[in-house]
């Protein structure tokens, strides 16, 4: 009997370790991200690597890079999976979910998902003049003062960039990132197709 108990104990331990390390997900807590958002997560993660924030964007030299998702999180844990154990520009990455834009002013990246369509203008107005890279997926995003807008074209995820807005917020975008964009707005209201 002793023997069986020990085997059972071992199995329980293994299950715990597996859950802790993310091998097995406790089922049915949240819906999995769609393939589109998996790609968008990768894009977001890649974009972050081509961005430079002003030094005042971080409270300390070793502060983590904070990515915030406003409202509902369509990425599920996709972003956490991508960021875990990796450094961006020498910083660890933290992913947060915030309800209001005011809370997100301290983040370096703010993703505004399609579900926040109604509050878009308010959010962007709140985040204006803060060194925050705003990324969205609502068609009016750039016109309303967002920096990077995802869209799907011919089954491919693409993005436009409002460089003027990024410049105004003191966020520097790498020229290679600009070259990959579908379109880049150099000045307010003017748009250049890539």
């Amino acid at each position: 009997m002793n023997f069986h108990r020990r085997i059972l104990l071992r199995l329980v331990w293994l299950a715990l370790i597996a859950v802790a390390t993310g091998l097995i997900k406790p089922g049915g807590v949240q819906a999995e991200a769609t393939p589109e958002y998996k790609i968008k997560a990768v894009y977001l993660f890649n974009i972050v690597r081509f961005v430079k924030w002003p030094t005042n964007a971080f409270s300390a030299a070793d502060s983590p890079l904070v990515i915030c998702v406003l409202g509902e999180n369509p990425f599920d844990t996709e972003l956490q999976k991508l960021m875990s154990g990796r450094l961006v520009g020498g910083r660890t990455v933290v992913v947060k979910q915030e309800a209001t834009a005011a809370d997100a002013r301290m983040c370096q990246v703010v993703f505004i998902p399609a579900s926040e369509h109604a509050n878009l203008r308010l959010h962007l107005a709140t985040l204006r003049n803060a060194p925050v890279l705003t990324i969205g997926e609502i068609p009016e995003f750039l016109g309303d003062g967002g920096v990077i807008e995802f869209f799907v074209q011919q089954n491919k995820v693409r993005f436009d960039i409002n460089k003027a807005q990024a410049d105004a917020e003191g966020v520097q975008l790498d020229s290679q990132l600009l070259s990959l964009a579908h379109a880049v707005r150099e000045k307010t209201g003017k748009q250049e197709e890539n």
Binding site: Y43, N46, F50, L180
Partner: peptide, 14 residues
């Protein structure tokens, strides 16, 4: 250096 973004985003054309 110039291929970083293209590789990151797997943009073959770029």
């Amino acid at each position: 250096f110039n291929s970083r973004a293209a590789l990151r985003f797997q943009d073959k054309t770029a």
